[in-house]
């Protein structure tokens, strides 16, 4: 045991963290990835929904709300682009990805529009945005149910 082994452990740690982005083999693997992406983006949408509702009821200051939504928007964008960079292994997977994008894309644009409205202090837009987020949440949950 020496400093070298400490460095070794840290290197292993970095490698294992990087290993999160593996190749996708079968349709089932791909389906699993879609379901994970849907769950993670749904968490982002739910966050935005709760945040927007609290901001509308003046229970949360706008800087806090804007920061939080902007963070989950970044997460959702990167989750979707990670999924999109995968090569679908089969035609079924290809179709699944196309269908998933029709659900993920509106969810992300709802996040973006909510962030913009909060930064611009457009409170009166919030009710409509909340309905869009609720819709996105609904679609994401259906997608999740369908693939898991």
């Amino acid at each position: 045991m020496g400093t070298r082994s400490v460095v070794g452990w840290l290197a292993l740690l970095v490698v294992s963290a990087a290993a999160c982005a593996g190749p996708s083999g079968t349709t089932d693997d791909f389906r699993h990835k879609v379901s994970r992406t849907a769950a993670s983006i749904d968490s982002d949408v739910q966050t935005a929904l709760l945040t927007a509702q609290l901001a509308l009821r003046e229970r949360l200051a706008l800087p806090y709300a804007a920061t939080t939504i902007s963070q989950v928007e970044d997460d959702a964008t990167s989750a979707q682009s990670t999924l999109d960079t995968r090569q679908p292994p089969t035609t079924a997977a290809h179709d699944l990805l196309q269908h998933a994008d029709t659900v993920l894309q509106p969810a992300i644009s709802a996040l973006t529009d909510t962030r913009i409205a909060l930064r611009a202090r457009n409170i009166d837009q919030l009710p409509a945005l909340i309905r869009r987020l609720q819709g996105a949440n609904h679609d994401l949950e259906q997608l999740y149910q369908a693939v898991s």
Partner: peptide, 19 residues
């Protein structure tokens, strides 16, 4: 709500919700 906490801001939402 199925919110997983990746940011401090999310963690604080319950406090806003309550108080």
């Amino acid at each position: 709500r199925g919110i997983s906490v990746d940011h401090l801001g999310q963690a604080g939402l319950p406090v806003a919700f309550a108080l």
